[in-house]
Amino acid sequence: MTDRDMIVCRCEEVTYGELVDTAGQFACNSRELKLRTRAGMGYCGGRTCRSLVDAIALAATERDVTQITLKYQPPVRPVHFGDLGAIPND
């Protein structure tokens, strides 16, 4: 196995080759790289691959120190649909 075939985002099965090519072709930031490849958009919310996707995008773009590169969205943990509508009890 080479680096190119190596899976970076396990949830969405995105390879290193796909990420590097996309970043190279569009000189995109992490957010755009995520949207183009779906890396970091799966079940775990990017918990495992976030820093790797970031590193690939940073090769072509500058870091903005005031902006978290891959935005966090609620829910930050997997939740059942049924539980999302819970009513405060405390």
Partner: peptide, 12 residues
Amino acid sequence: AAEAPVAIPGWT
């Protein structure tokens, strides 16, 4: 804190 990975072929 959370752990950051390094990626190596075969890491899955």
